[in-house]
Computed example of a mutant assay.
Amino acid sequence: MSFPPTRAVGRGSAWYRGDCHVHSVHSDGELSPAELAVRARAAGLDFIATTEHNSAALPGAWGHLASDDFLIVLGEEVTTKTGHWLALGLAPGQVVDGNHQVRDGLIDQCLDQVHRGGGLCVVAHPHAPYPSGDFMFPFQGFDVVEVWNGLWTSDRPWNADNEAALAEWGRSLAADIQTGSWRPAMGNSDTHLEGQTGTPHTVVFAEELSTEAILAGIGSGRSWIAETAYVDVSFTARTAGRVAGVGERLTTQGGQVDVRAVIHGVPMGTVTFHTDRGKIHRASLPGAGPGAVQWGTTAEDSMFVRIEVRHPNGDVAALSNPIILT
Rank of each mutant, 00 (worst) to 15 (best):
G141Q: 01
V114T: 05
V9P: 04
A43F: 08
Q140G: 15
G255I: 07
H264P: 01
L36W: 00
N54M: 07
S13N: 12
A213F: 05
W158R: 13
G198K: 01
P129W: 13
G278P: 02
D46H: 04
I280Y: 10
I177R: 07
V95D: 04
R282T: 15
N54D: 14
R7N: 00
V147D: 01
E227W: 05
Y16T: 08
R242D: 09
S210F: 04
H264S: 13
A216R: 14
R41I: 07
Q113N: 02
V78W: 04
V96Q: 01
V305K: 01
H100E: 15
L36D: 00
Y130A: 06
A229N: 11
I307Y: 04
A175C: 06
R282M: 12
H311E: 15
R306I: 00
W148L: 13
P4I: 08
E208I: 00
P200F: 09
H281T: 06
A288F: 13
G247Y: 10
L45K: 08
M136A: 14
F139M: 05
V123S: 02
A174L: 09
P59C: 09
P33K: 10
P200A: 05
G63I: 11
T80L: 08
L215T: 03
S24W: 07
P290M: 15
H100P: 00
G150D: 06
H127V: 02
G29M: 01
P4F: 06
E163R: 11
V231S: 00
V305E: 02
D46T: 01
I177F: 04
I177V: 13
D112P: 03
R242K: 11
Q294H: 11
A317P: 02
D301A: 14
A42G: 12
H26F: 12
Q109R: 13
A164N: 13
R282Q: 15
H115E: 01
L250Y: 06
H274P: 00
F139S: 10
V257F: 09
P312E: 13
V22F: 03
L88P: 00
H64A: 13
M268S: 15
A91W: 10
R242Y: 03
F273T: 07
E300R: 10
G133L: 08
L45V: 11
L65T: 11
P267V: 15
L151M: 08
E194T: 11
L173E: 11
T197H: 01
L31C: 02
V147R: 01
W169Q: 02
E248V: 14
E208W: 00
P200L: 08
R310C: 12
P59E: 09
V122A: 02
